[in-house]
Design a protein around this nucleic acid. Structure first.
Length: 310
DNA sequence: AAATTCTTCAACCGCGTTAGT
DNA sequence: AACTAACGCGGTTGAAGAATT
């Protein structure tokens, strides 16, 4: 009915997300939980549309996401499910809680389709352009042994889960955030100045929002880091330092024994006046992972996606 | 070493579905 | 029941890096 897409609004930023934005988003979601995406941009000051925030969360920042190479076992599951369900990536992803639908879709389009096509042309002259979906029975990934495959096929014959396995655990991995910070540092060597100025302007226009207090705190830290020319990659150690504040009696915040000022002296002085708990929520969130909730969930055995799910 | 082509994947777009009024 | 707004999904695009010429 002519409603303009939200992302067409003036002032809505597009393109790759910066770690600053990621941290703000993560911090906000840790506090409020995922959902109600419409309120996210206004409450955080992010110059992104709600849709973009949701996408970024589900495809990249969501806890427990595994990135990188797919295992033969995962390949096998994807191939089998794709042959059963077609391109229902969200449904397929529900069997692989560590992988996002976008990831699976990309992997299918860039790797598996080719592999299967190759396999078919090698055997019986099958051609992807024929329009017929290749069957899982025709291609078995290397390293995906027949016994596992048999188990999976049995297991995956169960009805689809009605909802994603993903529990309301908002733990995340320091590795994930460190990785994105590294990426940001890399790219920021090219255009740090411009982006920071842009962010600073955007930040100022939202500084009075109460719900954005924690996020604003994060922004301040990030901006300060950028202003001081920290253009080198943030390591895991740095991130650990970033998160090493803890609350002490009297409502003020100070470093833990192992901690050092993460943003330099100037920032430390600023922080002294500002009694905001720096990254407290993010910190707690990240430390939750240490309890092993996510790992336990993600290290499910081969037949994980069956019985525990139904 | 430079130019071109290919590959990958994060992000966007549009549409269908669902929920709220 | 009808309408609107928000959400979620699948297809597609485009930028960046890798590989090739």
């Amino acid at each position: 009915m002519g409603r303009p897409p939200c992302c067409d609004k003036v002032g809505i930023k597009k393109g790759p997300w910066t770690p600053e934005e990621d941290i703000i988003l993560v911090s906000y979601i840790q506090q409020h939980g995922p959902g109600n995406w419409r309120s996210v941009p206004s409450n955080t000051g992010l110059m992104r549309c709600s849709k973009s925030c949701r996408l970024r969360w589900t495809n990249y920042l969501r806890p427990g996401i595994k990135r990188g190479n797919f295992t033969p076992h995962e390949e096998g599951i994807i191939i089998h499910l794709q042959s059963m369900l077609g391109n229902k990536w969200a449904a397929i992803a529900s069997y692989l809680p560590q992988r996002t639908d976008n990831d699976i879709k990309n992997y299918w389009n860039t790797h598996l389709k080719k592999k299967i096509n190759k396999s078919h042309t090698a055997t019986d002259g099958y051609n992807m352009s024929s329009g017929t979906s290749p069957s899982c029975h025709d291609y078995v990934p290397e390293g995906y042994d027949m016994e596992t495959r048999k188990q999976d096929i049995t297991v995956l014959t169960f009805p689809l889960p009605t909802m994603r396995l993903t529990p309301p655990i908002y733990a995340c991995s320091t590795g994930n955030i460190s990785r994105l910070l590294e990426g940001w540092a890399h790219s920021s060597q090219k255009n740090t100045q411009g982006k920071l100025q842009e962010r600073a302007i955007a930040d100022d226009s939202h500084s009075s929002n109460n719900d954005a207090t924690a996020a604003a705190s994060v922004r301040e830290k990030s901006r300060a880091a950028g202003d001081q020319g920290r253009s080198t990659a943030m390591t895991h150690e740095d991130l650990g330092t970033l998160l090493s504040f803890e609350k002490v009696s009297g409502g003020s915040w100070e470093k833990t024994a192992a901690g050092k000022a993460p943003f330099g002296d100037a920032e430390a002085k600023q922080g002294g006046e500002n009694h905001q708990p720096p990254l407290s929520l993010l910190e707690k969130w990240l430390f939750d992972e240490a309890s092993g909730q996510v790992d336990e969930l993600m290290d499910l055995p081969v037949d994980c996606c069956s019985l525990s799910m139904f």
